[in-house]
C-alpha cells in the first residue's frame, strides 16, 4: 500500500514533470544538454588542443575565435577538450559521491542504534574538517592524474550526502510499508533496495546533480593549484596555465575568461535544474502558485490578509 503523490508521478517521472512545467528546470536542462553535446562531439570540430598553432597570447581573431594561450595553443580547442574531461570527472565523481553517501547514510538510518551513532560521528567529523586543505594533503602524496583527483573529491565530498540520506532513511523507516516488510521477515538488504531506495530516487538524482556541481568546482580549484595532471587538458589546468603564464599581467583575458564562464554556466544550469525540481515538488509553493495565478487573473495583487474575491458571473 503506497501513498499516492499529488502529481501522480514518482522518481524519475517527477523530473520530467519539473522539466515540462518549470521554466527554471527547462532552462537548466537545455544548458546541461548543450554542454554534454559539446563534450561528446565538440572535439571532432576543432584541432588537437596541444598543437602549437600560432604566436602565443594572440587575442581572439577569425582564425582563432578565442585567441591563443601563452604557449601558442588554440584556446577554443583547449576549452572544448577540457569540457569533455571536466564534465566526465564531474559527473563521475557526482555519482560515486552519492553512492558512498547512500551506503553510509542509508546504513546509519536503517540500522540505527550504535551503527548509526558511529557512522553519524564519522560523517559529522568529515563535514567539519575543511575540505580543501584535506584534499591538498591527500593529493600531494599521490601520483597526479584523474584517478587521484577523483578519489580526493570523493573523500572530501561524500559526507553531506550521507547526512541528508540518513535523515531521509530515518523518515522512511517509520513508514507503514517498511514496518510491514520488517514484520514479514524480509531481509534488510531487500528492504533497503526494494522498499527504501526506490522512494528516494528523485532525491538521489537531485544529489547527483548537486554533487556534480561541487565536483566540477572543487576539481577546477585543485587543478588550479597544480594538484592535477598539468599536462592534461581540463578546465582547471587551462586556468592553471593561464595564471602561470601571467595572463593577468599581460592583459590576456581570453586565456582565462572563457573557461571560468563555462564552469559558471554549467554549474548554474545544474543548480537551476535542481531548484526547478524543488519548486514543483514543494506542495506549498505549488498551491501558492495556483493561488497567485487565480488572483492575478482577476486583476488582483496577492495580499497579506486573506483576499476577498467575489465573482459576479
Amino acid at each position: 500500500m503506497k501513498e499516492s503523490t499529488g502529481a501522480g508521478a514518482t522518481g524519475i517521472g517527477l523530473w520530467w514533470e519539473a522539466i515540462r512545467r518549470d521554466r527554471k528546470a527547462a532552462f537548466g536542462i537545455v544548458i546541461v544538454a548543450a554542454f554534454v553535446l559539446v563534450a561528446l562531439i565538440g572535439p571532432l570540430f576543432v584541432g588537437e588542443p596541444d598543437d602549437l598553432v600560432g604566436m602565443p597570447l594572440q587575442p581572439p581573431s577569425l582564425k582563432h575565435w578565442l585567441g591563443t594561450t601563452g604557449q601558442g595553443q588554440d584556446v577554443l580547442a583547449q576549452l572544448i577538450a577540457g569540457t569533455r574531461v571536466s564534465l566526465a570527472i564531474g559527473f563521475g565523481v557526482g555519482i560515486v559521491v552519492v553512492m558512498v553517501g547512500a551506503l553510509v547514510g542509508v546504513t546509519a538510518g536503517y540500522f540505527g542504534g550504535r551503527v548509526d551513532g558511529l557512522l553519524s560521528l564519522l560523517f559529522n567529523v568529515f563535514l567539519v574538517i575543511p575540505g580543501l586543505p584535506l584534499a591538498i594533503i591527500i593529493a600531494a602524496y599521490l601520483p597526479t592524474g584523474p584517478l587521484t583527483l577523483g578519489m580526493v573529491l570523493v573523500v572530501t565530498g561524500w559526507a553531506w550526502n550521507a547526512r541528508v540520506l540518513r535523515a531521509q532513511t530515518l523518515a522512511q523507516r517509520r513508514r507503514d510499508f517498511v514496518a510491514a516488510a520488517v514484520v514479514a521477515g524480509e531481509s534488510s538488504f531487500r528492504i533497503v533496495t526494494r522498499e527504501i531506495l526506490p522512494t528516494m530516487t528523485s532525491l538521489l538524482v537531485a544529489q547527483v546533480i548537486g554533487s556534480t556541481v561541487y565536483a566540477i568546482g572543487a576539481q577546477v580549484g585543485l587543478e588550479f593549484l597544480g594538484l592535477g595532471d598539468v599536462s592534461a587538458v581540463t578546465w582547471g589546468t587551462n586556468l592553471y596555465w593561464a595564471q602561470n603564464d601571467a595572463a593577468l599581467l599581460t592583459g590576456a583575458w581570453w586565456t582565462f575568461a572563457p573557461t571560468g564562464i563555462c564552469v559558471a554556466v554549467v554549474g548554474f544550469g545544474l543548480t537551476m535544474l535542481n531548484s526547478g525540481f524543488d519548486e514543483i515538488t514543494n506542495p506549498r509553493l505549488q498551491l501558492e502558485h495556483a493561488w497567485r495565478a487565480y488572483l492575478l487573473k482577476r486583476g488582483r495583487l496577492p495580499e497579506r490578509s486573506t483576499p476577498v474575491v467575489v465573482d459576479h458571473e
Binding site: 568546482g217 577546477v220 586556468l239 571560468g260
Partner: peptide, 9 residues
C-alpha cells in the same frame, strides 16, 4: 557558480 579564484582574477 564561478570559481572563487576566477572571480578574483
Amino acid at each position: 557558480a564561478f570559481p572563487y579564484f576566477w572571480l578574483a582574477m
